[in-house]
């Protein structure tokens, strides 16, 4: 399930990358609300991360409201549906910004981008 590629070289701190990935899991539906996140130790071992990194990620997720920790049993995905939407939106926003930055650096214009979007994205995509 968790086959992440967390990259040391990435500009994002490791824990941020992990947070991002977990959020992806939540959004994509692979992690549903009410599901239990893997124990810190297990996730650390799996990803070859420092347990502190995982702990930090979990802590931040909890403070952002995406998970909650229950004493003695670990971390669980929060049941609040509302945040999923705003999460999705903010993540898309992030990816969009990164995309734009990259593409503009390459010299693409707004017209190029719009053309590509019209070519590949139709209203049908909404259902996929």
């Amino acid at each position: 399930m968790f086959l992440f590629n967390i990259d040391f070289a990435s500009p994002l701190p490791l824990y941020r990358q992990l947070i991002h990935l977990i959020k992806l899991e939540i959004i994509s539906g692979r992690l549903n609300s009410g599901d239990q996140l893997p124990p810190i130790r297990e996730l650390a071992k799996l990803l070859k991360l420092n347990p502190n990194t995982v702990a930090k990620a979990y802590y931040t997720l909890e403070s952002e409201g995406f998970t909650e920790s229950r004493r003695g049993s670990g971390n669980w995905v929060s049941r609040k549906e509302v945040q999923l939407d705003s999460l999705r939106r903010s993540m898309v926003e992030d990816e969009w910004r990164i995309f734009l930055e990259k593409v503009l650096k390459l010299g693409a214009t707004a017209r190029d981008i719009r053309a590509l979007m019209e070519r590949d994205l139709t209203d049908d995509q909404d259902h996929s």
């Binding site: 967390i6 040391f8 490791l14 130790r41 071992k45 990803l47 070859k48 420092n50 347990p51």
Partner: peptide, 23 residues
């Protein structure tokens, strides 16, 4: 890693290759 989490062991690693341990 298990040890680090379980016992709060301080780990000092001397190595030449880092790809697997870098995180």
């Amino acid at each position: 890693i298990d040890l680090m989490d379980r016992c709060l062991t301080t780990v000092i690693l001397v190595n030449h290759t880092f790809s697997e341990v870098e995180k």
